[in-house]
Simulated assay, not measured.
Amino acid sequence: MPQIEQLAATWASQLFWLALTFGIAFLIVGRGMVPKVQGTIDARDASVASDLAAAESARAEADAQEERWRGIENAAREQARQTIAAARARSQAASEATLATAGEATAVQVSAAEARIASAAQAAMAEIETVATDAARDIVTRLSGASVTREEAQAATKAVLHG
């Protein structure tokens, strides 16, 4: 069979060209293209890693700034609370001072009014004694016709009124 005999003759030639074609393809792809693709992949990996590191650094910085801001905010809140407490204390002290002044003024007015009332009561009592003395003298004179001195009527009236 001539086809089989021819196979051995063409076999070596085909193997040679196959090896040569694959060798050239290996050199072009394996030595030329693969290193460039691998370099691109490595550059992309390095870029992603640096971006992740930058993001982590930015997150850590943001956390630190947030912590500082919270500290400042808490300090401001505490200062505001202290300011409000001081204002309340000043207001309360001012109110107490005003109330004390008003209380003293009221106490003075009450004392003056009590003194006026006591004076008016004494004056009224003296007038009542005078009127009672005059009335007693007139009654005794009209009823009995006897004459009573003012001092006697006054002593009798005081005895009755003051016990």
Rank of each mutant, 00 (worst) to 15 (best):
L18Q: 08
R31S: 07
A123D: 00
I128N: 13
V37F: 15
R70K: 08
R137V: 08
L52S: 15
G163S: 02
I28D: 06
R142D: 15
G71C: 05
A75C: 05
A132V: 04
V148Q: 01
A105L: 04
S95P: 03
L99F: 02
L99D: 11
T83H: 11
A118T: 13
E152V: 03
L27G: 07
R137W: 03
E151T: 11
V37A: 12
S13R: 00
A121P: 05
A19Q: 06
R88M: 11
A43M: 12
T141I: 09
A126Q: 07
A120W: 11
Q92C: 04
T157I: 03
A126W: 01
D45C: 13
K158P: 01
V140T: 08
A155E: 07
V108K: 09
R31Y: 13
L7T: 07
T83S: 15
R68G: 08
E129R: 07
E127P: 01
E114M: 14
V29C: 12
Q14A: 09
R116K: 15
S57V: 13
R59P: 00
R142K: 11
I24H: 04
D138C: 06
E56H: 02
D51H: 12
A46N: 13
A86P: 04
A54Q: 09
R137K: 14
T106M: 06
